[in-house]
């Protein structure tokens, strides 16, 4: 008897005009699992990620989150359900301070709209100050509490990534999806990020990582899905995936894969 998966991608298929970008991709993520999604350039990782996060709908196939079908639900419905994401190109709100950026992760918990807010005017102040405390704690977790009042321009790329993660964590997601979190980071920053993800994993956070950096993903993930040319070519533990002929072929070339065996 296995635990039901938290995310289930079933027969995902995406066509752009005449080009089949994603062909029949399926995988599952169990609660507490850290799943990696890798593949060479143009393998369809980003398209798959976009479909799971609701940025673009699949041509066919289904996406299930916690027993609910979310295939064609728009992007804004993901966060209240318990899915949070970060961005490869940092997309923080430039006009807001670091703390306010993290607070935006809590936005769906606030009353929605002017009248709803006015009706709950009494409790709003309390909610705001509690939210701020929580946001500060998240900034402490990523080690940026002393930057709370800084503008976004004052951050380095690595720091901005961490703020993005803190912002995603603010909504208390059950599934955290990270889009190439290590891209553009230096070694120290990448190690720091790896440690942080390890702590999150220890706390039981389920994660989906799209990544280029193979070293990073081999250390961070329990299981890895490998894609090539829009097709899933492997799905298993890092060790299994490393031995997979198709994976070696996709990454290094067919001949290397043959030589290995």
């Amino acid at each position: 008897m296995s635990v039901p998966p938290i995310l289930k991608v079933d027969g995902l298929y995406k066509r752009f005009g005449g080009l089949i970008a994603i062909n029949n991709v399926s995988f599952e993520i169990a609660p507490g699992e850290v799943k990696g999604l890798i593949g060479p350039n143009g393998a369809g990782k980003s398209t798959t990620f976009d479909m799971i996060t609701g940025v673009r709908p699949p041509t066919s196939g289904d996406i299930w989150f916690k027993a609910g079908r979310i295939t064609n639900q728009p992007a804004h419905t993901r966060s209240p359900l318990g899915m949070a994401r970060t961005f490869q190109i940092v997309r923080l709100f430039r006009g807001l301070s670091v703390l306010d950026n993290v607070l935006m992760g809590l936005q769906p918990k606030f009353p929605d709209g002017l009248f709803a807010s006015l009706a709950r005017l009494g409790s709003l102040r309390k909610q705001e100050s509690e939210s701020r405390d929580k946001a500060i704690q998240l900034l402490e977790f990523v080690g940026l509490a002393d930057r709370a009042g800084h503008p976004i321009e004052a951050l380095t790329l690595g720091q901005a990534r961490l703020v993005d993660i803190a912002r995603a964590l603010a909504s208390e997601p059950q599934l955290l999806m990270l889009d190439e979190p290590a891209a553009g980071l230096n070694d120290a920053e990448t190690r720091n990020l790896g440690n942080m993800l390890a702590i999150l994993k220890d706390r039981g956070m389920t994660m989906l990582l799209v990544e280029h950096d193979l070293d990073f993903i081999m250390k961070a993930c329990d299981t890895i899905v490998v894609m090539d040319h829009g097709v899933k070519i492997a799905d298993g533990s890092p060790a299994e995936v490393c031995r997979n002929r198709d994976v070696i072929a996709a990454y290094i070339g067919r001949r290397a894969a043959d030589a290995e065996h």
């Binding site: 993901r78 966060s79 209240p80 949070a84 923080l92 709100f93 006009g95 936005q107 769906p108």
Partner: peptide, 19 residues
């Protein structure tokens, strides 16, 4: 805060659950 977020980046605001 929500309005400023939309002004700065609609996609990110959407991902955070802002309609």
């Amino acid at each position: 805060r929500g309005m400023q977020a939309i002004r700065d980046d609609e996609t990110a605001a959407q991902a955070l659950g802002v309609r």
